[in-house]
C-alpha cells in the first residue's frame, strides 16, 4: 500500500516535470520558458522527494534538507539567468495585440 502511494507521488512528480519540458518546447521566448521550467520542475522534484519519502521512511530528514536547498536555490538560479538576459537587452515577447 505504502509502496503504491510512494510510486504514485513519483508519477505525479514525473508528470509535472513533463509539463515543464512541454512548456520549454511551446513557449515563445526565453522568459516564459524560464517560468514554466522553474515552477513545474520545482513542484515535480518535490513530489518525487515525497514519493521517495514513502518508499524509504528512514530518509525523511535528508529529503527535507534536499527540498529546502532546492526551494532556496532553484528560484535564485532562474532569477539570475533572467536578470542577465534583461541586462543584456533581450526584450520579452509580446502578444500581437499588445505591441
Amino acid at each position: 500500500m505504502i509502496n503504491i502511494l510512494g510510486s504514485l507521488f513519483i508519477l505525479v512528480g514525473a508528470l509535472f516535470c513533463f509539463l515543464g519540458a512541454l512548456g520549454l518546447m511551446r513557449m515563445p521566448d526565453v522568459y516564459n520558458r524560464i517560468q514554466t521550467g522553474t515552477k513545474a520542475v520545482t513542484l515535480g522534484v518535490l513530489f518525487t522527494l515525497l514519493g521517495v519519502g514513502f518508499l524509504h521512511p528512514d530518509w525523511w530528514a535528508k529529503l527535507i534538507a534536499i527540498g529546502g536547498f532546492l526551494l532556496m536555490t532553484n528560484p535564485v538560479g532562474s532569477s539570475v539567468i533572467a536578470r542577465a538576459l534583461y541586462k543584456a537587452g533581450v526584450q520579452p515577447w509580446r502578444a500581437e495585440g499588445d505591441r
Binding site: F16, M27, P28, N32, Q35, K39, A40, L43, P92, D98
Partner: peptide
Amino acid sequence: LFKSNFDVARRVLTPSLPIRPGI
C-alpha cells in the same frame, strides 16, 4: 506553488497558448 503549477499546466496544455507577457 500548487496554484502556479496548475496555472502553468493549463497554459501549456491549451492549444492556443493563452499568454500575454509583460514586465
